[in-house]
């Protein structure tokens, strides 16, 4: 087990190095001089520009720049935002809590919808309820999140006037207002993920239910409920966890569109704003953060397999 974790961590470091190299090269091939971008409209002499370039190390060979940059990244120093002049690490960390809250709430909604719906569909397999639920989950998968978000704003805020349309209040300041503002973004992301998860879990449950152990459990007199919950669901949760982990990775690295629509100051919105402003150090930071998070969650999911299914052996 330890050997497996060590091997996976080593592979992850390798991929992160490749990812960093990709990000570094992409940002360096950009047309335009970062120093000129930094001084903006100010009238600065050529010698001052050269001095700035030297102090930032931009006049050194690319491989040297990469190693220096990598060293800084490893120490948590992602550079300074061109626009706000604040350290990127600080900017990034200030946006993480919003994304974290949104991701946690959305995943909770997704799981609370997907598990009962998939179990209901399997219980009524081939009948109208199954068909309705399967159609509903296909709609969930195909429905663009931003159309759902705008639909919710139109209905809940503009027509019924039940909820404020956009904005963010920290839960520390006012928990009730925070939750009120989080309802629509959470539903947008949760329901879209629920579509995918329901489809997958329904398929897995149907496959598991056809196995011999279910017949054995029935023959031994176990109730349908006990069979479904403690045998079938538990086995079907293994692939379900992979996709759930993937969804968690996507949500935690920033639900770009949802955060933008609902004006939530999360990591995704940070990425979009800075692409529009061409603030490359910040984009670089967001992209690296996303990749690191995504890979870590995938590793965590692989390790959870062993807990869910003791037959899984790490080799």
């Amino acid at each position: 087990m330890l050997r497996y974790v060590a091997a996976r961590l080593a592979a992850m470091v390798l991929v992160m190095l490749l990812v960093s190299a990709c990000v570094f090269v992409l940002m360096r091939v950009l047309p335009g001089d970062p120093v000129v971008a930094m001084v903006g409209m100010m009238d600065v002499s050529a010698s001052t520009l050269a001095g700035m370039r030297h102090s930032l190390g931009l006049d050194r060979p690319l491989p040297v720049q990469f190693v220096v940059w990598l060293g800084n990244v490893a120490h948590g120093n992602l550079g300074v935002s061109i626009r706000s002049r604040e350290p990127v690490t600080g900017v990034l960390l200030s946006h993480v809590p919003v994304t974290l809250e949104l991701a946690a709430l959305s995943l909770a909604v997704a799981v609370m919808v997907a598990i009962p719906f998939a179990m209901l569909a399997v219980r009524h397999h081939g009948r109208w309820l199954d068909r309705m639920l399967t159609a509903g989950s296909l709609v969930g998968v195909s429905f663009p999140g931003f159309v759902l978000a705008l639909g919710l704003i139109y209905l809940m805020s503009l027509r019924l006037r039940w909820l404020p349309p956009t904005g963010y209040v920290s839960p520390v300041d006012d928990l009730a207002d925070n939750l009120k503002l989080m309802i629509m973004p959470t539903l947008t992301l949760g329901l879209t993920s629920a579509g995918l998860l329901t489809r997958l879990l329904r398929g897995q449950l149907l496959e598991e239910i056809s196995h011999g152990y279910v017949r054995t459990a029935r023959a031994k007199g176990a109730t349908e409920r006990a069979i479904m919950v403690s045998h079938v669901l538990r086995n079907a949760l293994v692939p379900f966890t992979t996709v759930l982990g993937n969804e968690a990775g996507v949500l935690l690295s920033g639900a770009v569109i949802t955060e933008t629509i609902f004006a939530l100051p999360g990591v995704g919105r940070l990425a979009v704003e800075n692409v529009l402003n061409r603030d490359l150090p910040v984009i670089q930071g967001v992209v690296l953060w996303s990749a690191l998070l995504y890979l870590s969650i995938n590793l965590a999911v692989d390790l959870i397999y062993g807990v869910l299914d003791p037959r899984v052996r790490y080799g």
Binding site: M16, V19, G254, V256, V275, A291, Y294
Partner: peptide
């Protein structure tokens, strides 16, 4: 390496 990025974030990075 390419699959280590969430799709939309990678797509946004590329358009940047």
């Amino acid at each position: 390496a390419l699959q280590a990025f969430p799709t939309l974030i990678l797509a946004i990075g590329i358009t940047a």
